[in-house]
Write a protein that binds this DNA or RNA. Sequence first.
RNA 1: GUGGACGUAGCUCAGCUGGUAGAGCACCCGGUUGUGGUCCGGGAUGUCGCGGGUUCGAGCCCCGUCGUUCACCCCA
Length: 416
Amino acid sequence: MAGQKIQAPKGVSEYVPPRSAAFEFVRECLIEPARKAGYQLIELPVFEDTELFTRGVGESTDVVSKEMYTFQDRGDRSITLRPEGTAGVMRAVIEHGLDRGQLPAKLWYSGQFFRAERPQAGRYRQFYQVGIEAIGLDDAAIDAEVIAIADAGFKAIGLSKYRLEITSLGDAQSRADHRVDLVKFIAGMKLDEATSARAALNPLRLFDDKRPEIKDAMAKAPLLIDYLNESSRSHFEQVTRYLDVLGIAYILNPHMVRGLDYYTGTTFEFVHELLGAQSGIGGGGRYDGLMAELGGQSLSGIGFGLGVDRALLAAEAEGVINENSFVSDLFIIPLGDAAKEMAMKIAGELRAVGKSVEIAFGDRALKGAMKGADKSGARYVIVLGDSEISSATVELKEMKTGATSSVKIASLIKAI
RNA sequence: GUGGACGUAGCUCAGCUGGUAGAGCACCCGGUUGUGGUCCGGGAUGUCGCGGGUUCGAGCCCCGUCGUUCACCCCA
């Protein structure tokens, strides 16, 4: 039907001016600390072979079992829009032999991810993450560094009302031992059907239940942190010691549950205080078995994923985003055709040396064009008419103060 | 997937017990021929999310649908 409006698909986040500038700022803040720590860009497809996620993330997880965008492509392959970043990075590391060089392989990525959930504040079907992965090093120091990089990103945005929660999930043996006891404990509880189904899938989930009666009952449940073997325990203690040295505050949360199966050992989450139910602005941890599970050598890795959408929401909630971060250096108002040509030539020359220049096109009246210059936030404005062209001189006006000065067109570069 | 609230100009919203749509902001023009932000005057703008139904008549009532939002769930 002609004229019918088409809406964006349900639950996607979009960023248009002026908010897109804030989004870009937040994303850059999150990426920069990784670059400074020697992490390199890895740019990957947004869709992958479905098996990468069923095998890598784990079939028992909600993410895989009911939140993936999966479809058959024209070659009848099962394709899935990536719901998270780590599995894809590991796939690419193995495929390109990045694990054959010097270790750790340190990588960062940024882009959109997809999960078919019911949309909510801070929860979208297409969302943005910035993430890093450090692969092939067991040193507790890199666990701390990874956490520090995430923290630096949030601080760069200007966030302060968030907390870091950490714990250790231990190795496979520690988790298996704990699970036996935890399942035994849960068997003694009276649970409704949905809850016991959840417990059967992942008994740790009950630690995260928000109902007070469950919380009370779980208060006496055996904690995974008490089942860590010697090496897991000392590794984790080492991590916390490094965080202390770095002055990064954290809260030990032995109840922490993560939604992805591959996490082992050090695990962490950043939680913002001003957000609603979707308050996690980032999280990550170590994954010992993932690479081998995906057919690579048996190397450990650690990484995080930070939510750009949520970090932006958090920044807005804290009021730390300042508008007008982008302004042009010069705004040119041409009067007449000859002036328009001249304006375009001047703009080209100034842009070539790194100045940002806008031109008022469309033959607007001077008053309207001046308003446009004002709205744009440009630092300087010049009006270009016949007299300016013949004298090769313009009145350079500084918008903030209103002060003007005569400047030769040829020396505009130096003046602004 | 489950439950609640909402959906009116670009934005924020008003619209009494159903009678055929408004405000503020933003936008455009002007306030003597070429210099903005204040002020004053003027102007444009809506298939009242979409589709049915009830009614002489619906933005207001009913049903459906799409979307948004909040919580559960889950997580970035």
